[in-house]
Amino acid sequence: MISLVVPLWPGLAASLALGLAIGALAGVPRVRATRIAAGLPLLALGLLLGLAGLDTVPGRAGLWIEIAALVLACYLAGCSLGALARMLSGRTS
Rank of each mutant, 00 (worst) to 15 (best):
S3F: 12
S3L: 12
L4S: 15
V6I: 14
V6R: 15
V6W: 08
P7C: 05
L8Y: 02
L8I: 07
P10Y: 03
P10I: 08
P10Q: 08
P10A: 07
L12Q: 05
L12A: 10
A14D: 08
A14N: 07
A14P: 01
A14Y: 04
L20N: 06
A21R: 11
A21V: 14
A21Q: 08
I22R: 11
I22N: 09
G23H: 02
G23D: 01
A24G: 12
G27A: 01
A33T: 13
A33K: 13
A33L: 13
A33V: 14
A37S: 10
A38R: 07
A38L: 06
P41I: 03
L42P: 10
L43W: 06
L43T: 07
L43Y: 03
L45P: 01
G46I: 06
L49K: 06
G50K: 04
L51Y: 01
L51D: 00
L54H: 10
D55L: 11
T56R: 13
T56A: 14
V57M: 06
V57L: 13
G59V: 03
A61T: 12
G62Y: 05
G62M: 02
L63P: 02
L63G: 11
W64F: 09
I65M: 00
I67K: 14
I67N: 05
I67T: 13
A68W: 00
V71P: 12
V71S: 11
V71T: 14
V71D: 09
L72G: 00
C74M: 14
C74Q: 11
Y75I: 08
Y75G: 14
L76Y: 08
G78K: 04
G78Q: 03
S80A: 15
S80T: 15
L81M: 11
G82R: 10
R86L: 03
R91L: 14
T92K: 14
S93K: 10
